[in-house]
Write a protein that binds this DNA or RNA. Structure first.
Lengths: 203, 203, 203, 203
DNA sequence: TTCTAAACGAGACGGTACGTCCCGTCTTGTG
DNA sequence: CACAAGACGGGACGTACCGTCTCGTTTAGAA
């Protein structure tokens, strides 16, 4: 993390405004969501958050760092819970993934992942870690399935991750290109299709 | 289309430099590939292409339009040929898709699709059409399979498209995050996995 | 002269449009009068005159040359006629001078004289010649006065020229700064003052 | 005034660079003097003054405003002192005027007055005020002369101002057209002529 | 008549400056 | 010290002209 986990920096002088980080990161994500990369302005974020520009630069080195941190800060790891069956687990996960990309903020997060994937630096590392988490979740799902005796094959979890996340992404991309809202029903139907294909396919 | 398919504009006045469009679009894509969105400069493109800035602005309204057109111009529709079997057809297509995203230019094209998916007008339309083409290719593949008696189920081609393209994209994304080159062998192995899953899954 | 007095250039090819020069010079002066130096555009002149830009550049080397020629072309040498008395002669001349600077076109001419006085080049030479003419006119006036026995002193005609023209110019400048029209009566009164001062002063 | 006499703008924020205005105005006048109106470049002024372009545009709305202000800022009111005689006073004033127009900077100032006399707003107002000052100086001179008993006539000071300034201007114009330097001796001789004419003429 | 050469309208071109906007740095005063 | 305010150098944006160029189209005299 860039700044947020430093300890409160005991010592003299005026203490940093509590809650400043959060407000700024929130405003940053809003600006980015509304205006895209161009139109995402440091002055704009500062104004929206109600802080001076220097407060931003005191915490983040530059525009990229702020944006990057905004994503990281608000990226929720897609948590998993044990539903008791392989199909249930996959459906639960797939639904979360599809929702993530359908959500404007989730979409923004993905854009940033793409933007920084090659550009390396900080977000690249973060995304790598995140990607590892996702693979572990999938490995866990199949491990439990094996423990239950539901499933016996060898599985390359990466392939499954790619299929699942890729399908979710392209689903959302299609909606965006058509300027259509994502409807719950359609999302569920697509999730079912995808889970069915993957389940059958892996046997 | 913004400029490229207008008829040669019969009539008076000095004709537009032949080949200018192509050179500029090529330079634009190179600049974008090298420097990303920031660092992608109209002056830079003009200099690299060997034209004056006014020549660029005579053809494209602004930076976005040029970049957008650069993608469109050089996006090759992934053509398909009949290999004689469903598995062969899918493998052929999947290989092409995986290669596209593994290729730096193909990756740049995708970045631009993402960047402009929600925002832009013109490219959105183009991508929609392109997406339609891809779906038709997949529909053709399965239609031929049905004609051969290889396959009888109902297939939602959109789901297959999403799975295939999505898997290709996330495969390339993974390589990029690890700063690894894509090796032919690994690509082939992943393609095989994905095709196997889809084939089994759709039965 | 730049172009206008070249003989018709006998030979083949389409002859130059008759009257083009005049129309263009007129339009040039109008544009300059209306918009000043900035806002004086070759394209603008061409459009107003109803010719293509190439027609302009076929005749004048550049913007300066055109403007310069426009002034020269339309600068009327302030002619003199013998009124029979020194006072009459001076009044006649002074009135013409005052009127010249009060006239918008005359004012434009003066602006250009100023602009090009130091910048040297072509107009500088022309203005020098013109200035010589004016001095000769004044010398002529005083010579006739001496012949008539009205006047016997030694006169430095340059000083008289400067006084007369300078007074006329500053009179017009004053009106312009006040955004006032020049009225015939006021002009005559000022001319009378100036002539009286000069006449008395030279005795 | 455009910018220079605003009070120091108490309060927060980094204060404007002290001395910036002066340096910039000086550079502006230099550039104008050297290159004339064309060739007078905002970038050029900024570079010469050692400031960024934004610093210029923070203070002046555009090129015109800067140039205009440069004249105003550096225009010295031609001060007068009491020499004890009418002839002395007039000679003193005339010498100052002749020198002003002979000086390259003074000449540049006059060019700008001419350029902006009809067009511009701000400078026009300024020049009007200035012109009023000059008239007052002349009125003062003649008032003192009357008090001394040197002079009894009615004088229209405007006419005298015009004669004096006009003669000075045309004297300088003549030197410029001939590309001759102004020599002190010649200047003095002309001043003497002009003062003599005016003095005699007004009796 | 046919040919040839110049003038012409139109407008593309390389280049330069405009005035605007934003970045990231800096410098002040206030809390 | 942190912070608000905002000036600063730098650099890209998109626009407007300049003066050059390259077309196709006229318009005349020469062949």
């Amino acid at each position: 993390m860039t700044s947020s986990d430093e300890q409160p920096r005991r010592g003299r002088g005026r203490p940093r405004s509590p809650g400043a980080e959060e407000k700024i990161l929130h405003s940053a994500l809003e600006e980015y969501t509304e205006h895209g990369w161009s139109g995402f302005t440091m002055d704009g974020v500062a104004r929206r958050a109600g802080f001076g520009k220097s407060t931003l630069y005191l915490r983040w080195a530059d525009k990229d760092a702020l944006l990057t941190d905004a994503v990281r800060q608000r990226t929720r790891v897609i948590l998993h819970e044990d539903t008791g069956s392989l199909e249930g687990d996959l459906t639960y996960l797939a639904t979360a993934v599809f929702r993530e990309y359908a959500d404007p903020e989730g979409w923004a997060r993905f854009r940033m992942v793409i933007d920084t994937a090659s550009a390396s630096q900080s977000l690249g590392q973060f995304t790598r870690e995140l990607s590892g988490l996702h693979r572990e979740v999938i490995e866990g799902i199949f491990q439990r399935a094996r423990d239950r005796g539901e499933f016996s094959g060898d599985v390359e979890p990466l392939s499954v991750t790619d299929l699942l996340y890729g399908a979710g992404l392209f689903f959302a991309l299609g909606r965006r290109l058509d300027h259509r809202q994502v409807e719950e029903e359609e999302l569920a139907s697509r999730v079912t299709d995808v889970v069915r294909v993957i389940l059958n396919g892996l046997v």
